[in-house]
Design a protein around this nucleic acid. Structure first.
Length: 886
RNA sequence: GGCGACGUAGCUCAGUGGGAGAGCGGUAGUCUUACACACUACUGGUCAAUGGUUCAAAUCCGUUCGUCGUCACCA
């Protein structure tokens, strides 16, 4: 059947088709798992973005990479599932909604818990739709039918199941402990939710007098206002200076309290005065020390960070920093403050709102971690879970070995409310999977639920199995759990990855994924983290708008090396865009030449040397892609498809085929096109995981396809294809062409001057025979007028310029192409002129006055000129020598 | 302070025992039957410094300098 030419738009314009193609895929259910039980399964869960966030480059990266993998496995025929979803992000979301309220002059307390949650759900719905459409826009082939939210019904059930189970196993407890508390967010935080930043502060030296009037001691502190919580002063028991004073009593300045001097090994003899005031309720070390010595804990703060009633009246209700100034002033006035020096120290800040964290004594819920940590360590030791790159294993192990109990209660409203009820009558506590209506113990219906909610990560850590139906034994769970790999940034290794492994081991006895690939972080060109406050972020949607989703995906994959952060700016994406354009134009070229062509069966054709060569290159590229993707070396896989398509297919194969494609013999043309389209079709499949949209759009136009690209078979490496002889032959031809092109370029012989060339292979072999048989092709690559393949080594080459390569030499009859005498004269002129200029420059540069007194820019400019002249002279002399040599 | 990473072409980075590479940039030329988002060629680097192991080191080891990350911290 004779085909008609197909005309594609002149340039690659992703906007013309990206949304349409994505819609078609989604519509046709292409993202759904095949459910084919006969095939291997491949499953991945998406790291759920915060529902109130906006997609940033980090999301783009850790959704692009799984997309590549998922598409690759789908094309291998695997039963693939990629589960998308969003996270309720307790603190972050609550903050967002509170900001909205503030604009209306309201606080959450004013509108109450129920109304606040209603508002929050509304905000969640709106933002969810934005996030989901952004994920679609960047081309993620996740299965939307499996989408989950950490607070949807199923996942909430999973959270309860997890909490109650852990409680039943004795792994959850409640108690009064010193926790990290953010006064602004009004909630406790886990240890790893605190970020430490060095800030300048002061170290105050304060005198505490002995109660017996025998003098005073001096302590050093950065936080003088906490002195109201002091319950002792500690010295090191080994400290000779203070051995005699241990046990004495001190008067605490500004108060009427008396505190003892105690001995404790944690005190550093060398630091400060060697005396430390002990404030158990406001410092983790002091808290430990207080426990050891059975000291009371005096909490001096209100939840909002102001001083409370345990402090002298004067300071009550002042914010800590204000109180500090007042205390310092009073200490100074009363002669207690004797020193004050600059002191930089690390201070904890809230990872959500960057407020200074207070160690705060309060009643909180905790998870015991040591046992789970051991299981998670074993999972790694047994190779149940593997880290890429390997270096993260150390970090993982170190964290697990030093783990502390996890504070999971948050004094927020947005989140999973802790499933604990208290009886108002008998005071008993109940921990329940289902909401109770009456007290188990006394039967009273006057019960109330715990008001705290759970840490967001308490739901995220169940994600790989809660999204598949756990705690129920669903078909999805049976089929797709454990998942195959997890891709996310290393910044949430502890928050999320480690905890998922712990939860999964605890509840299911296996690792939730086989592999963890931890990506680097996306940074700007200056190496700074992209952030809203710096305004240096790149919006993935803007990238899509300017260059297309494929360009973004390809660039990210191509730039993704193991363990390195990725520095990018908007221009970085030109690379992917150019590649897509190249693909587009190659396809356009072939399709526009389809007129009157009848395609044959590529499998039954007798292949020529070049045909075998290109199939061999394709086969090898496929091997590299498989190798790269199997080991999470996305850059190597992307590079392989790039080089194959551009350098092998476009630059050599398509160019080589032009003669046949324009042959007057229709049979020759049909044959050429049959193979060209077959290679194109397979190339599109090869490239599809990296540039899905453009390959699908082109694929849909091909006359030799009947499926969609997304559902086509990946052209996997076929060990039976071995055309290494053809590989050598074509390599030799390419070498000959390069040699001639070098000569032409060196002597600046314009293309329209057809040159006379003798090619002399070292040996008479398949390559020389091929070149002899394809002289026309070779001539066109060399733009040669006359070409002799001189296997017999008989041609007269005395007049030609030789150039030698590996296994081959070429001789170019330059004389015919260039007017030697004129060229020599021209070069001599040029050398002369440049030497004069150089002499002038040198004169300036050798003048000390010039060097010492002229502006540095001027000197530098002269030096640049010198280098330029010298280079020009050297080049001209090189040419001159060449021309004079024959 | 512990642990770790990095330092390769003007820029961004690959490369892990035997050839120093890519993309972008620069230079020169080319509208050579799709692609100027192209083609061709060229340019450019004591692979941070130093010592060692080796027949052979950008690659392995030691030390130094510089940059960064991370964990833990002294009040």
């Amino acid at each position: 059947m004779k085909l008609k030419a197909i005309n594609l738009e002149k340039a690659y314009n992703p906007k013309d088709f990206e949304d349409r193609i994505y819609g078609q895929w989604k519509e046709s259910g292409s993202f759904r798992p095949s459910g084919d039980k006969g095939a291997a399964k491949y499953s991945v869960v998406m790291p759920p973005p915060n529902v109130t966030g906006i997609l940033h480059m980090g999301h783009a990266l850790n959704n692009s990479l799984p997309d590549v993998l998922i598409r690759y496995h789908r094309m291998l025929g695997h039963d693939t599932l990629w589960v998308p979803g969003t996270d309720h992000a307790g603190i972050a979301t609550q903050n967002v909604v509170e900001r909205f309220l503030l604009k209306e002059g309201l606080t959450r307390q004013q509108i109450g818990r129920e109304a606040f949650l209603k508002r929050t759900w509304e905000v969640k719905e709106r933002h969810h739709d934005i996030i989901a459409s952004q994920l679609e826009k960047i081309g993620s082939s996740c299965d939307w039918d499996h989408e989950r939210f950490t607070m949807d019904e199923g996942l909430s059930r999973a959270v309860r199941e997890a909490f109650v189970t852990l409680y039943e196993r004795g792994l959850i407890y409640k108690g009064n402990y010193l926790v990290n508390y953010c006064p602004k967010c009004g909630t406790a935080l886990a240890d790893d939710e605190v970020e430490y930043q060095e800030i300048p502060g002061k170290l105050y030296e304060v005198r505490y007098p002995y109660s017996d009037g025998s003098g005073f001691i001096t302590v050093a502190t950065t936080r003088p206002e906490t002195m109201f919580g002091d319950v002792a002063v500690a010295v090191n028991p080994e400290d000779e200076r203070y051995k005699s004073v241990v046990g004495k009593t001190l008067d605490l300045p500004l108060t009427d309290r008396k505190i003892p001097i105690i001995a404790d090994g944690f005190v550093d003899i060398a630091f400060g005065t060697g005396m430390v005031k002990i404030t158990p309720a406001h410092d983790p070390n002091d808290w430990q020390c207080g426990k050891r010595h059975n000291l009371p804990q005096i909490n001096i703060l209100n939840p909002d960070g102001t001083l409370n009633d345990n402090c002298p009246e004067k300071y009550r209700n002042l914010p800590a920093l204000v109180a500090r100034e007042a205390v310092v002033a009073d200490l100074l006035a009363q002669g207690y403050l004797i020193g004050e020096k600059e002191h930089n120290h690390e201070v904890g800040h809230c990872y959500r709102c960057h407020t200074v964290i207070e160690p705060y004594l309060s009643e909180q819920w905790f998870v015991k971690m040591d046992g789970m940590a051991r299981k998670a360590l074993d999972a790694w030791k047994n190779k149940e879970v593997n880290f890429y790159p390997k270096k993260w294993e150390n970090t993982y192990v170190h964290w697990l070995e030093n783990i502390k109990d996890w504070c999971i209660s948050r004094q927020l409203w947005w989140g999973h409310r802790i499933p604990v009820w208290y009886c108002d009558k008998c005071g008993k506590m109940m921990v329940k999977r289902e909401d109770p209506t009456v007290c188990d113990c006394c039967g009273s219906d006057r019960i109330h639920q715990e008001t705290d909610v759970l840490d967001t990560w308490f739901s995220s850590w169940l994600w790989p199995f809660s999204t598949l139906g756990w705690p129920d034994k669903t078909p999805d769970f049976d089929r797709y759990f454990p998942t195959d790999c997890l891709i996310t940034g290393y910044d949430i290794l502890f928050f999320w990855v480690s905890r998922m492994i712990m939860a999964s081991e605890e509840f299911l006895g296996k690792s939730p994924f086989k592999d963890v690939f931890l990506t680097g972080l996306v940074r700007d060109k200056l190496g700074r983290k992209m952030s809203k406050s710096l305004g240096n972020g790149i919006d993935p949607l803007e990238v899509v708008d300017r260059y297309g989703a494929d360009a973004m995906k390809f660039t990210l994959a191509h730039g993704c090396t193991q363990g390195q952060d990725m520095k990018i700016d908007m221009d970085s994406f030109k690379m992917g865009s150019k590649f897509c354009n190249k693909i587009w134009n190659a396809a356009r070229y072939l399709l526009m030449n389809l007129e009157d062509v009848t395609l044959g069966d590529p499998d039954s054709l007798e292949l020529g040397v070049l045909d075998k060569w290109i199939y061999n290159r394709l086969n090898q590229a496929a091997a590299k892609v498989a190798e790269g993707l199997d080991s999470y070396k996305f850059n190597e896989a992307a590079q392989a498809v790039y080089e194959f398509f551009w350098n092998d297919f476009c630059d050599w194969y398509v160019e080589s085929s032009k003669k046949d494609l324009y042959s007057t013999d229709q049979a020759v043309k049909d044959r050429a096109m049959t193979i060209l389209l077959d290679v194109l079709k397979k190339s599109l499949s090869l490239m599809h995981p990296f540039v899905p949209l453009v390959t699908e759009e082109i694929y849909s136009k091909l006359p030799n396809t009947d499926t969609s690209c997304i559902n086509s078979r990946f052209p996997s490496f076929n060990p039976k294809i071995d055309y290494s002889d053809e590989e050598k032959t074509v390599g030799m031809m390419q070498e000959a062409v390069r040699l001639v092109r070098n000569v032409r370029s060196d002597l600046q012989i314009p293309l329209e001057r057809k040159i006379h060339v003798v090619v002399r292979p070292d040996e008479d072999n398949a390559a020389s025979a091929f070149m002899a048989a394809n002289k026309d092709l070779l001539s066109s690559f060399m733009t040669a007028g006359e070409l002799v393949i001189d296997t017999a080594k008989k041609a007269d080459i005395s007049e030609a310029l030789p150039a030698a390569g590996l296994g081959i030499s070429v001789y170019v009859f330059v004389r015919e192409a260039v007017d030697i005498e004129a060229e020599i004269a021209k070069l001599r002129d040029e050398i002369e002129k440049n030497r004069k200029s150089l002499a002038q420059t040198m004169q300036k540069l050798s003048n000390e006055n010039f060097i010492n007194h002229a502006k540095p820019e001027a000197v530098e400019k002269e030096q640049q000129k010198r280098a330029e002249f010298e280079e020009k002279i050297a080049k001209a002399e090189h040419h001159l020598n060449l021309l004079q040599s024959f």
